[in-house]
Amino acid sequence: MEGFPQLTTWAQANVEQAVFYLLAVIAIPLAYGVVCDRNIIRSGFLLIGVFSTIAGLFILLSAQFLALAQIMIYGVGITLVVVIALMLTNPKAEKESMPALSIHKGPAIFVACFLFMCVYLALRSAENWPVKTDVAALSAAENLSRIGQSLLTNYSFHFEFASILLLAALIGAVMLAKAEPAVHDLNELSANEDKLKSSERADDVVKV
């Protein structure tokens, strides 16, 4: 916001905290929706909301590049793939019969509370981190060029390795998801063959 000095100072003074709490109050119910909603496809869409609010948090932390990458890769790419997988694996019949959450609710709540308390106490106990919040964050242009330079100098090995990982994941995903005759189809086939021989045995195979 160059050219708007008064607006900028006003925003820096008041807006950051308010926007943070606004995003948090939106994001926490959405995250609950992701894990608890009965309709699993809807929870897939809520996941998009969670990722978008997290992108908002990244902007507040002056990580503009990461926020945009978050929207582009997480908010749209990954989540859409998840939603499509849900639609492929979740015909309506199964959705009705299956409760959203399992019998492990008690242990799950315990695990969640335990993890949260661990992390929170660790946060509170560390009072002498070398925090430099008084140092101004890099401007968006500097942030961008710093990230680009680091990726191609200090982190170039990691960068190349990530590309190999992505290639391997791409090939692996294609191989895994490639259509092949499914086992239950084969079962049905053999069941049909058996049916011709003896109807009793065919019934057993179907039950198994």
Binding site: I40, V82, N90
Partner: peptide
């Protein structure tokens, strides 16, 4: 702290959900 809350919610969903895709989420 907000990050820790997301982490706890994710852990809860991970342990409690029955659907494999929801676990991935």
């Amino acid at each position: 702290t907000l990050g820790a809350i997301f982490f706890a919610i994710g852990a809860y969903g991970m342990v409690a959900s029955r659907n494999a895709v929801r676990m991935l989420m």
